[in-house]
Simulated assay, not measured.
Amino acid sequence: MKLPILKLVATLISVFGLLSSVIASPDIANGKKIDEQKCYACHAKKSGFGNGDMIYTRSDSKVKNLQNLKSMVAICNTELRLDLFPEDEADVTAFLNKQFYKFKK
Score class of each variant (00 low, 15 high):
F100Q: 02
S14W: 13
L82C: 02
A10I: 13
K62Y: 12
T93P: 01
L19V: 15
K98M: 13
K45G: 05
G52F: 01
K102L: 04
N30P: 07
Y56D: 07
R81V: 15
K38V: 03
M72D: 11
G31A: 01
Y40G: 04
S71I: 09
F16R: 09
K104Q: 14
F103V: 06
V15P: 00
F16L: 15
F49K: 13
L19N: 12
Y40D: 04
V73S: 03
R58A: 06
L12H: 06
D91A: 15
K105R: 15
F103D: 04
L18R: 09
P86L: 14
S47E: 04
K98W: 05
T93C: 00
E89T: 09
F85P: 06
Q67R: 02
I5G: 07
S59I: 11
K45H: 10
K45E: 04
E87A: 15
I55M: 03
E89Q: 15
M72F: 13
L69H: 03
N51G: 06
H43K: 00
N51D: 11
N30Y: 13
V15K: 01
S21R: 14
N97V: 01
A90H: 07
S14N: 06
T93I: 03
G52T: 00
S59G: 09
L82G: 03
K45Q: 13
L80M: 11
G50F: 07
T93M: 00
E79N: 14
L18V: 15
L6K: 12
N77G: 08
F103N: 01
G17D: 09
Y56R: 06
C39M: 02
L8V: 08
I13F: 07
G48V: 05
E36G: 02
T93R: 00
I55A: 01
S14L: 15
N30H: 13
A10N: 11
T93S: 02
E79H: 13
K32E: 15
G17W: 06
A41Y: 01
Q67Y: 03
A74W: 04
N77L: 04
P26Q: 09
E36A: 04
I34M: 06
